[in-house]
Design a protein around this nucleic acid. Structure first.
Length: 246
DNA sequence: CATAGTAACCTTATTCCGGC
DNA sequence: GCCGGAATAAGGTTACTATG
């Protein structure tokens, strides 16, 4: 962790996922205690069967929360492995990680430094995540397909088609429209794990429709960028970011 | 201005049941 | 048993709006 990293207010605690209970909750074991924990990703994580995986959890300071812990990351390592590598699954927090680096100039090669950073800007019929200077920025953190090798002891589930693409199409279409006002627009894809690959694999049931919308937005000038983060119990570090050429 | 209530956003997983 | 569709479940974050 370098000095510009995003730091957690207190280090995350390690636990074990017992079971995913529903869309929003997971049962986790922390220091021998069973807890009902908040699951910040509403979708699945790759095609992983999360049961039995090590995880990192943050403790909330809000006493009104129903679930005192939030699952921030999971690991494909064995429980007994000492140095685990983590896969961040908190897509909500991904926006905060990005914001942190936007504000401190960590993305200066992308959007410059010292710009005003506004979040949740309304553009057309969509809300885009950030407006930095004159650049609209939409952050996506795909987790449907993890681009990592699974060790053979990892359990997987059958992949289900990813069909919830309406919002994605809506957002990139709005990004394209914004360029008519002579502004820049960027679709930033984030990976909160050490992603060895450079390609986004996004298969979906209406792949052609998405493909067409992506192509159109690129034609209009929307830039596609990728950022890789690394998550540790102490914080999150921006490893690298770059523009993806098509 | 401060607080409380609301709505949008994140974006399906799981369980149950009937029909093979 | 297995498949597939319907019903069910339901946290947190953030911003906006109404109220005092």
């Amino acid at each position: 962790m370098d000095k510009n990293s995003f730091k957690f207010s207190e280090p995350l605690v390690e636990g074990v996922i017992v079971k995913r209970k529903g869309q929003f909750t997971m049962i986790c074991e922390i220091n021998g205690e069973i807890n009902n924990c908040h699951c910040p990703t509403t979708g699945r994580v790759g095609n992983l069967d999360l049961s039995g995986l090590p995880c990192l959890l943050s403790k909330s300071s809000d006493p009104k929360r129903k679930t005192p812990y939030t699952v921030e990351a999971v690991s494909l390592n064995r429980l007994e492995d000492f140095n685990k590598s983590w896969i961040g699954i908190n897509q909500n927090a991904a926006n905060r990680y990005v914001e942190h680096y936007l504000v401190n100039g960590g993305f200066k090669d992308m959007v410059g430094a010292g710009n005003e950073v506004l979040r949740e800007q309304v553009l057309g019929i969509s809300k885009l995540d950030f407006l930095v200077g004159n650049t609209y920025l939409e952050v996506k953190t795909p987790l449907q397909h993890l681009q990592v090798e699974y060790p053979d002891y990892i359990k997987t589930k059958k992949a289900t088609p990813f069909s919830s693409t309406d919002r994605f199409v809506k957002h990139i279409t709005e990004l394209g429209k914004s360029l008519q006002n002579h502004q820049r627009a960027i679709l930033l894809t984030c990976f909160i794990y050490n992603n060895p690959g450079f390609e986004i694999i996004e298969k979906s049931t209406n792949y052609e429709e998405v493909r067409a919308a992506v192509d159109k937005s690129i034609t209009l000038g929307v830039e596609m960028w990728q950022a890789n983060f690394e998550i540790q119990p102490e914080g999150v570090r921006l490893v690298r970011y770059f523009k993806r050429e098509v």
